[in-house]
Design a protein around this nucleic acid. Structure first.
Lengths: 191, 191, 191, 191
DNA sequence: GATGAATGAGAGTTCATTCAT
DNA sequence: TATGAATGAACTCTCATTCAT
């Protein structure tokens, strides 16, 4: 009985992995149900046991991935930290997540940039947790009183950029270190 | 002969427009040759007169689009400007380009985030012009001596973020204004 | 044991009902095992407990339906009736059966008109009972000495026609009344 | 140029023939696009050049077939004929059509008996031509003043029945002859 | 007896591409 | 140059059926 249960979850998981991997390697065009099934080691028909149709499958997996990504940021900030440290923690955590979850990250990115896909899914940009945290920091004057979109933009967009495609000669850790300082300068009132 | 030339270009142009529009509206999956041809008002066979095959067509149009985007940044900076002004000009120009070329921009974005597509095209991130400009500014100590990737990341990634999807209540011009100040703080030595 | 028997029969019955209903509503194409099972409130696998396979199931249900239809005609004719009354009774009974068993009737009709289905099932057109009755009536000169096929054709085909699809303005009972007179004229020697 | 034109029509015609034949031999279930294409000697994709989808194809071919069937009845009745002769002509013509167009006829029959199919197509039962003819005959008192549905029912339903499935020992022409007499008795005022 | 999970085969349909005109 | 017709391959999805539980 344990076996059966396990088998099910394993199958769904292997489908998910196949989707993420294939979309990284071949893009959405290359990720046909047949290929996904083959990669996951199941029959094409099996996919439809776990998902209603292809679009629902992608949306579902996307949701799981983003939930996971957001959770990874939670809990890295503790009360009592000052602004600089909080920024450093958040940025490093985000950077680390990207580097360690390249496949998932690229999947999310492709999904996010495709209006046809992400319009139909009502993603909240930024988690409730993060929103609360940032609001609090603004109220405590740890961070300047910036527009939330701008905060997100400065905090996460540049990190994403260098985590994904950096070609310069400076070593990755050094570059990250430098970027953190830049972000701190931008965000903290008296730096 | 002039007439013929014109006619040809018109057809190719309408194909290009169709591609960009369709990919914005329906994503890469929705942009089949048949649909593109229908949208452009030509026969599917006609597409193959101008392009060798679908992939070549996409690469080609992508190249045109990015060239266009880069050109739009050129010429907005004049010698004698100080760091703050240069940053403001570049950021505003980029923001304006995105807002006024939404279709093209989303097309580029989708292309850029799809490894399967953009790996095979050797795009240089950032134009030669921009590279030269930034190097010069660093040498003149107008900007801090930051890693080029970091410079790009702070200069353009956040703008792109708020130009694409901003939901906050602050008005767009105000938010842009604020973001420019933040970027200036991050980049200019003594601000 | 009685309980079990009952339960089984209920399941089989609900499968049968599902088949008849679905085929009425959606035709043979729409009556997949999955849909049938869903409609009947059982698992697809359960269907295969009661029937060897889909074709056998259809043949089986068809047989039950036709048996039922034929039985409904039995017993409406009593010795001593004259030709006109016998015809009236048979025609009314048939008409009533169709109207009151639309689902079953359409199922039979679809089955009958599909050579691929009804060739493989050796149905006797007309029951032994009816054959005996008509033969007897012919011998007694109650009806004219017509070919049996012709008798069936005149007795039942027109009724079926008006029971199924009638669009004229005359009321249904009046039309039936009139049709009965016509059939009587056709069949009875001295009318 | 003639060749091309011809080829097109030939292709559509061979698709139509394939549909009719396959549906006769294997029923609607057996007539898949793949089989139809194979039988017609074209690619599956070619079918979709001539028809929007499978249902439209079936409806279209059905319409052509019924039009053809109705036309075959036209012109067999001439003014000045008496009731008996008119009935004989119509019935023989209909019988002849069925016998000589078995494939088409069974296709129509299957289509007509499938509510799922024929509900969505608004066929007029009986042609305008026939309706006019019968009305006229009733007005001239050549035929009794019967309900139109009943007229159709008596005139055509029994013929169809014996043309399709007759098993008795009487020879076909004799049976038809007899049936014509029966119908005449039913329909003509003073016979 | 009853089932949900699983599947290979095949359904209808669209794909990128070619070719005769 | 430009095209509509044509196509094999591949698409998403459903089929009838089986099997472990």
């Amino acid at each position: 009985m344990i076996d059966t249960r396990k088998k099910d979850d394993e199958k769904q998981q292997s489908i998910k992995n196949a989707v993420v991997r294939l979309i990284l390697e071949e893009g959405f065009q290359g990720a046909s149900i047949a290929k996904i099934a083959r990669t996951a080691g199941v029959s094409p028909a099996t996919v439809y046991i776990y998902y209603d149709n292809k679009e629902a499958m992608l949306q579902d997996i996307y949701q799981e991935c983003t939930d996971d990504a957001v959770h990874s940021l939670a809990g890295c900030v503790r009360p009592g930290m000052d602004g600089a440290e909080i920024i450093e923690r958040l940025v490093r955590r985000y950077y680390g997540y990207i580097v360690q979850n390249r496949e998932v990250f690229y999947f999310i990115e492709q999904f996010d940039t495709c209006p046809a896909l992400c319009n139909s899914c009502n993603t909240v940009r930024g988690s409730a947790y993060l929103n609360r945290l940032l609001t609090e920091l603004k109220q405590k004057h740890v961070l300047g009183d910036f527009d939330t979109d701008n905060l997100y933009a400065i905090l996460f967009a540049p990190v994403k950029r260098i985590a994904c495609h950096s070609e310069s000669d400076k070593s990755a850790p050094d570059r990250l270190e430098e970027l953190i300082r830049m972000i701190q300068k931008a965000l903290i009132q008296k730096f």
